[in-house]
Amino acid sequence: MRRQVAIVFAISSYDIDRRSTGSSIGAWESIVNPLQIMLFFIGMRVGFSLLRGSSRYAAGGSTDMYFNIVVFIASGFCIAFLFRMVAIKALSGLKLRAPLYYPRIKPLDILLAMALNDFRALATISLGILGLVWCFTWSFQLDSPGLAISVYLITVLMALGFGICLVFLGRLNKWITRIVKRILNRLIIFTSGIFFATFELPEYVRPLVTWNPVLHAVELFRYSLNNQYPIPDISLVYLIWCSLVLLGFSLILYRTNESLLLESNSE
């Protein structure tokens, strides 16, 4: 077990190292790419708020009653994009294949290492941005640190389970892969609550988005930052169930089809 953990960390460093020598910004590349998207999202949301002008709920909309707008977007982004990055990468197949040359390394180790790198990158960005905002506004708030860590880890497990399932789906057909990729991107962007809060939605619209467990993770994470934040129809139990079912199913799938991942993806 200890050796397998060491192997996952070694592959994780292997991937960062090989990217760093091919990039002018070195090892920072893994952080800069998601940071660009995150800053774009924050800029977009703040831009819309400015366009809307002053309202009774201030510049950030009703969510601004509970959060700084940057914290609101960053907290949604770090959860939803963790899920997206792990899933989309998995859908493209096992791109880091060379380590499989060594008999001790299995495809699952590579998937875990890739997820670990995404987790590290997004956690670093999120902590950096939250720290900066707290520093500038001098209003540190983390009401339930235990819940925040739990939600983050449950999301990692769920992303991993979903990612492993998608690795196998991605092997079926490149057109299916492309369609699923596009659907996934849009679903994650528009139903995961990066830009909106569930309590802002009318009650009859909520069932259209609350099926998405990523929304539950995002909203619970925000709730853990500020316990005053309302989370109607959001459930930790639902999130845990989704994670366990996805992870369990993916491990069974992996156990029975591991040899498929040794073959190269034709795309």
Binding site: R18, S92, K95, L96, R97, A98, L100, Y101, L262, S264
Partner: peptide, 8 residues
């Protein structure tokens, strides 16, 4: 087997 790393 193709064990080359692909550009991601």
């Amino acid at each position: 087997l193709n064990l080359l790393n692909l550009d991601s």
